Simulated assay, not measured.
Amino acid sequence: MSIALPIITLVVGLIGGFFIGVYYLRKQMTNMQNDPEMLQKVAKQMGYNLNGKQMQRAQQMMKTQGQPGARPGAAKGNKRRSK
């Protein structure tokens, strides 16, 4: 019992920390969609300098990926042309 309790506590703590981290990250991503200045700040930290058009595209991409059932590449203007 003296060995099992710390192991169980560690596992529960890791699982709880993971889910809290996921919740926090999703909340931050939602805030970035609504706040272009925050998105610009994150882009600069990553070494990118986004202009207005790139900023709009990044916001649109984040909104599209945040929707349930959204497919990558299914955004407007990414359709293939058949000959």
Rank of each mutant, 00 (worst) to 15 (best):
A43R: 08
L39F: 04
R71L: 12
M1K: 08
Q40A: 01
K44C: 05
I8W: 00
G17R: 05
N34G: 02
P72F: 11
D35M: 09
A74W: 07
M29N: 11
G47V: 11
T9G: 12
L14M: 14
M62K: 02
P36F: 09
A4V: 14
Q56T: 13
L39T: 09
K79N: 14
M38F: 00
R80Q: 03
A4S: 01
A75G: 10
P72A: 14
G69V: 02
V22M: 11
P36A: 13
Q65I: 13
N34R: 15
K76F: 09
A74S: 15
K63L: 14
M55L: 15
M62C: 12
M62Q: 07
K79Q: 12
G52P: 00
Q67C: 06
Q56C: 00
Q40F: 01
P36T: 03
G17D: 05
V11S: 01
L14N: 08
M62P: 00
G66W: 12
K53H: 03
G47S: 05
G47I: 07
G21D: 12
G13V: 11
V11N: 00
R81A: 12
I3V: 15
M46K: 15
A43M: 03
Q59I: 12
K41E: 10
M55A: 07
N49S: 11
N49T: 09
V42F: 02
Q65C: 12
R71E: 11
R57D: 05
L50C: 06
V11F: 10
R57W: 04
G21E: 00
M55V: 06
G13I: 08
A70Y: 12
G13R: 11
F18A: 14
K76H: 04
I7P: 04
G16L: 13
R71M: 05
E37T: 07
N49A: 08
P36Q: 05
N31G: 06
V42E: 07
L25T: 12
R57V: 10
Q56D: 13
